[in-house]
């Protein structure tokens, strides 16, 4: 148990610290690499929630897809983008936008407060699930069950989301076409 807690805290700390650093770095390239670390840490955290398939999917799709996309988009962009960023900060660490900080902190405090007061008073289905042993166990074969679920219970959303993905990509491709001669 000790190792587990320690690892969990390590992954959580990594994720949070990377995210904090991510929003402070001026250099977008470095920020995107920090994002990479964040995503990996999140995947680790998924594992602790006994969602191994989600973790792998996260790494495959998010890191391998989205992050790469962002990096390529950033790297292949114009020089003006880079200039635009450099010129915006004169000092090394400029005062961050204080309204946003206050808002974020307010949100955070609100949510943590509600979680902690909620923790005293868990909803029924969770306590029943714990009581009747309908929790996911580490020994479960998640992939197999997920596969079954996808093909039987959730086949409609599955199909819909694949159509949706196709639409999105087509749309994106269309949006970003080069209009050479009008």
């Amino acid at each position: 148990m000790m190792i587990e807690s320690l690892l969990f805290y390590a992954f959580a700390a990594l994720a949070i610290l990377s995210a904090l650093l991510l929003v402070h770095i001026r250099n977008i390239a470095r920020a995107l690499f920090l994002l990479f670390i964040v995503l990996f840490s999140m995947a680790g955290l998924y594992l602790f929630a006994l969602a191994d398939f989600i973790a792998i999917t996260q790494i495959l799709v998010y890191v391998g897809g989205v992050l790469i996309l962002l990096i390529f988009a950033f790297m292949l962009s114009n020089k003006e983008l880079l200039d635009d960023l450099q010129s915006s900060s004169k000092r090394f660490i400029s005062l961050p936008n204080w309204q946003a900080i206050i808002l974020a902190l307010a949100f955070l405090s609100l949510m943590i407060y509600s979680y902690i007061s909620w923790a005293q008073d868990m909803p029924e289905w969770i306590s029943q699930a714990e009581a009747k042993g309908r929790m996911i166990l580490p020994t479960d074969n998640n992939i197999k069950i997920l596969g079954f679920k996808f093909m039987t219970q959730y086949v409609l959303p599955f199909e819909v989301i694949s159509v949706f993905l196709m639409m999105a990509l087509i749309g994106a491709a269309h949006l970003s076409r080069k209009e050479s001669n009008k």
């Binding site: 309204q99 808002l103 307010a106 949100f107 609100l110 509600s114």
Partner: peptide, 20 residues
């Protein structure tokens, strides 16, 4: 955009505060 978003979220926070 960000200003508008900020204001909207302020109201949300206030609403949540009220509910809490």
């Amino acid at each position: 955009l960000q200003t508008y978003l900020g204001f909207a979220l302020t109201i949300v926070v206030l609403g949540l505060l009220y509910l809490l």
